[in-house]
């Protein structure tokens, strides 16, 4: 044997991934929140806010913008005053709220893939398949991560259409994606999905049921959601470089958690806990 890790058995990983995706699509408890939350956050909310902001008489945002960090206020301060509110809210403040989508989708799916497998007593079946521990782990990660990113990107597309449409009468141009949005969907969003995954992998090792895993995981994930809400309500403001940095930090934590999770994800340990 060489010291190098053997290659990933792609066919097996793909087959396992498919099994999880086929099964999860039939699970109402999983699918419903995965549809409702993105629709509320990325379609209904921007629609209401957009219509509200459009109808309201242009408020004087100068004082507010003055209080913002320079590089956050700069792209907005330069706009005509009637455009400022719509661009600020839809183009910037709402962007972090979007992070709830990848976070939620990945943690719901990860809870189903790890704790759910234990609860349904189907884990042992998997352990008796000729797949390496690492490939099994990888398949389960991808089964949560890929849909989380896919759904968040689809959600963002829907958001972009809604935001640009409601803002059209005011702006007369396409303004989403803003640079903030691009950072969110391409960098911070996937990081948050990976983080949710890392947390749930950790938590699922202890939890007996999906529900328990979701509760335990929620304790970790909720503060992050509050941070996102805080940002979008203007309490907490994140500039582009900060967003990039936060993304990097989240990735680092996620990779750390997932690395630990991978080391603990061994047949022997799993079989002893079923």
């Amino acid at each position: 044997m060489t010291g190098r890790a053997p290659a990933v058995d792609r066919a097996a990983v793909r087959a396992l991934l498919r099994r999880d995706l086929v099964a999860v699509r039939r699970s109402k408890a999983v699918v419903i929140p995965m549809l409702i939350v993105p629709v509320l956050l990325l379609v209904v909310l921007p629609l209401l806010i957009g219509l509200g902001a459009r109808g309201a008489p242009a408020p004087d945002l100068t004082r507010f913008l003055d209080s913002l960090p320079g590089d956050l206020a700069a792209p907005i301060a330069g706009l005509p005053s009637h455009e400022q509110l719509v661009v600020l809210v839809l183009g910037y403040l709402l962007a972090p709220l979007f992070l709830i989508v990848p976070l939620m989708v990945s943690s719901v799916l990860a809870a189903d893939a790890f704790a759910g497998e234990k609860e349904r007593r189907t884990m042992e079946t998997l352990l008796h398949l000729p797949v390496r521990d690492r490939d099994l782990f990888l398949a389960k990660l991808l089964g949560a991560f890929l849909p989380a990113v896919a759904i968040s990107w689809l959600g963002f597309l829907a958001f972009a259409v809604v935001a640009n449409t409601v803002a059209w009468p005011v702006l007369g141009r396409i303004f989403v994606p803003t640079p903030m949005w691009l950072v969110m969907i391409l960098w911070v969003g996937p990081a948050v999905a990976a983080l949710g995954l890392g947390v749930m992998v950790r938590v699922s090792a202890r939890a007996r049921t999906t529900q328990e895993a979701n509760q335990l995981g929620g304790a970790v994930v909720l503060p992050l959601i509050f941070l996102a809400v805080g940002q979008s309500s203007g309490l907490l403001l994140v500039t582009l470089p900060v967003a990039l940095g936060v993304g990097a930090g989240l990735w680092a934590i996620a990779v750390l958690l997932l690395g630990r999770g991978a080391r603990r994800f061994t047949r022997d340990r799993l079989a002893a806990s079923v």
Partner: peptide, 9 residues
């Protein structure tokens, strides 16, 4: 021992 079938499939 437990059949280990996925109910959803």
């Amino acid at each position: 021992e437990a059949a280990g079938l996925d109910d959803r499939l």
